[in-house]
Design a protein around this nucleic acid. Structure first.
Lengths: 160, 160
DNA sequence: CCAGCTCGCTTGAAGTGTCAAGCATCAGTT
DNA sequence: AACTGATGCTTGACACTTCAAGCGAGCTGG
C-alpha cells in the first residue's frame, strides 16, 4: 500500500483523535493507581485473578488465561509468577498434557478477590461506566469492536 | 464514601467494559509498534515532536509540553533527553526565567517529523479513525470528554 | 525409535514509566 | 539581605513490559 497523498485528518477527526490519545495515555495509569490504592493489586493482576475465579475449578491453562486477559504469554508468565509468590495462585502441569501449565486460584486467592471485587466495581464505575449514559455505553461497545478488529488484523508482531 | 452494597455491572455495562479494557490493553502497543516500524520513533516521541512543530519558533517550556503530551514532567524529561541525544531536540534555559527550560525542535528534528507525518496519519487511520463512521467519531469525542473529566478529577496522585 | 518440527511456557536482558528525592531559581517576608 | 516556601525540572532506583532466546513435551515421518 503505497502512500500517495497523505490523507490528513480533518477537524472533526482531530477533535476525536486528540482526546482519545489523551485517554489512552492517562486512563490506564489512573485505573491502575486507583486499584492499587484500594485493593493493593494492579488492575491487570485483578483481571487475571478475576478470570480464574470465573473458570471452572478456578483453573485455566496459561494460554487461555493470556487470551482472556489480553496479554502476551510472557507478560502473563511474569505476573502469575508474582501472584504465585504471594500465594494467590498455584501452577501445576496439566495431567494428560505435559506442556500445558494450569493456573489455579488458591483459597487465599479466592478470598482476596471476593474481598476486592466491590472495590473494583467502584473504581470502574467512577472512572468510566458511571460517566456515560446508556446510549453512550452501547456506542462505546460498538466503537471498541470496530477498533479492536483493526488492531487484531494489523499487527503480525513485527513483520511476518 | 462507604461501600454499601456493591453496585455490580449489569450485562450491558459488562458488554461495554470488557471490550474497552481489551482495547486499553492492546491499542497502545499496537500504535506504538506500528509507529516504530514505519517511522522509527514511538508514538509518544512522535507526539512530543509534533507538539513542538506546532509551536511558535518550534519551542515550548517543558511544562507546557508535558501538558500537551499528557505526560508527567518526569516522563517528558526522560524522553526529551533521549530525543536530544539523537539530535532532534535542543534544550536551553529560558532567558528571563532561569528555572524554565525551553525545548526546541532542531533542523534535523523538523525534517524528521515532516517526513514521518504521512506515515503517522496512515497508522492512525488504519487503527482507529477509518474504522469508525462519522457518527461514531462524534460519539467517541463525547465519550472521551466524559471519561477524561472523571480521570482528571479523581487521581490526586496518592492521597492529599 | 529417533530426527526434526511445533507447541506451550519460561527466562533474562533491555527499554520505558513511575515515584520520590534532589536541586536550582524565583517570590514573598521580615 | 537572609529565610521560607513554591516552582520547574532532573535524577536514580525500582517495577513492569517486551523481545528474543531457550527448553522440554508432544507430534510426525522416515
Amino acid at each position: 500500500m503505497p502512500t500517495d497523498q497523505p490523507r490528513w485528518l480533518n477537524q472533526r477527526e482531530r477533535d476525536a483523535w486528540l482526546p482519545f490519545v489523551g485517554l489512552l495515555l492517562k486512563l490506564p495509569h489512573a485505573l491502575d493507581s486507583a486499584m492499587r490504592r484500594t485493593t493493593g493489586l494492579s488492575h491487570f493482576e485483578y483481571l487475571v485473578l478475576s478470570a480464574l475465579s470465573d473458570s471452572t475449578e478456578h483453573t485455566r491453562p496459561m494460554s487461555e488465561l493470556a487470551e482472556i486477559a489480553n496479554a502476551s504469554q510472557s507478560r502473563l508468565s511474569h505476573v502469575v509468577a508474582k501472584l504465585e509468590e504471594n500465594g494467590l495462585v498455584r501452577r501445576s502441569t496439566c495431567p494428560g498434557n505435559g506442556r500445558v501449565v494450569l493456573a489455579t486460584l488458591t483459597e487465599a486467592g479466592y478470598r482476596e478477590i471476593v474481598a476486592m471485587a466491590p472495590r473494583h466495581v467502584d473504581v470502574v464505575r467512577a472512572l468510566v461506566i458511571d460517566t456515560l449514559d446508556t446510549e453512550q455505553l452501547d456506542q462505546l461497545t460498538a466503537i471498541c469492536a470496530r477498533i479492536r478488529s483493526a488492531v487484531d488484523r494489523e499487527p503480525p508482531t513485527s513483520r511476518r
